[in-house]
Simulated assay, not measured.
Amino acid sequence: MAEADNETTAKGEEPLLSVRHLRKSYGDHEVLKDVSFDVRRGQVLVLLGPSGSGKSTLIRCLNGLETIQGGEIRFKGEVVPNNSEKAWRRLRTEIGMVFQSYDLFPNLTVAKNIELGPTKVQKRPKAEVDEQMDRLLADVQLSEYKNAYPRELSGGQKQRIAIVRALAMNPELMLFDEVTASLDPEMVREVLELMLRLAKRHMTMIVVTHEMEFARRVADTVMFLENGVILERQSGSDFFTNPETDRARNFLDSMSPVGDE
């Protein structure tokens, strides 16, 4: 594990995100226990593990949506003051996050949902934001829905719009928390293909997913968690072909299609 922690340092490249000895508790229940890792620019880190292992809690800590009880989060070389909402409000313009529940404003059109953050939070000119929005919508093949309301979109379309909304803030890091979990199976593919394109464009990403084939294709690094502890950290190719722990092997077996040998 220590070797993996120092991967970016060994390459002479400061991590975009560095987490050290992170602890998170709900009352007496410790959900994350001494979690440490780095994410370098352009890397895709996939978090895997059984339900309740701490994956979603961890990714929410990395956007200031959960308070922490100990440890350090460092972004672009600067320590984020522990549980400082003021600091996190600023950083959320650089760390985008997409949830499984879309979280689009139902009373706003697609365009207004996308414009809101860049124009109100970043104070960017509307004309500049609209030009970028048109490019992004064209990229996800949803230009015709610019003036539609969320209720008029399918689940997959809503999720792609949620991703576009996050990208319109020009984040340096994107966090994805089970973004396909609430989608019908036929809608999952279009969202995963968009995320694959982002990875090929070297977008720095941390992804929580149960889509194993997608994880295999997209992951530079896999972190396998259980009970709030990192049990295993490997390159994506090594994890899926030769997991180090029995627990990870059993997890991968349990996620294989029925009848797969």
Rank of each mutant, 00 (worst) to 15 (best):
G27C: 08
G156S: 12
S254G: 06
L91S: 08
E85G: 02
L194D: 05
F251A: 07
R216G: 05
T241L: 11
E226A: 12
V191G: 05
F176Y: 11
F176W: 03
P15T: 10
D103S: 13
S56I: 08
R247V: 14
E152S: 13
L17G: 00
P171F: 02
T57C: 12
I161P: 02
L183C: 06
K120F: 13
L47H: 01
T221W: 03
R135Y: 09
A2C: 05
T241Y: 04
N107K: 05
A10F: 08
K24W: 06
R151G: 12
E152L: 09
L153W: 10
E172R: 12
E190G: 11
D246N: 14
V98R: 10
R92C: 03
P243N: 11
R92H: 01
R41W: 02
E128T: 13
S18V: 01
N147C: 00
S53E: 01
F37G: 02
K76V: 02
D260R: 15
G96D: 00
E94C: 06
F176V: 07
V207I: 15
D260W: 14
T245V: 10
E78V: 07
K120Q: 15
M255C: 13
S143E: 14
E94M: 09
A248D: 01
G77P: 05
A181H: 05
Q141G: 10
K55G: 03
M1T: 13
H202N: 12
L167N: 01
W88Y: 02
P243R: 11
E66M: 08
F75T: 05
L116M: 13
V39W: 07
D38W: 00
L65Q: 01
E14V: 13
E152Q: 15
E152R: 14
N6L: 08
L173A: 02
D246G: 07
S101E: 14
I114K: 09
I59R: 02
L65A: 01
V207T: 11
E115I: 03
P50H: 08
E30Q: 15
M205P: 00
V179S: 08
I68S: 10
S84Y: 09
I59S: 06
I114T: 05
D253W: 11
R74V: 13
A215P: 06
I95M: 11
L22I: 03
Y149T: 09
E232W: 12
R60W: 00
D139Y: 15
G64M: 06
S56R: 11
E193H: 04
L91E: 08
L173V: 07
V129P: 06
V98N: 05
E14R: 15
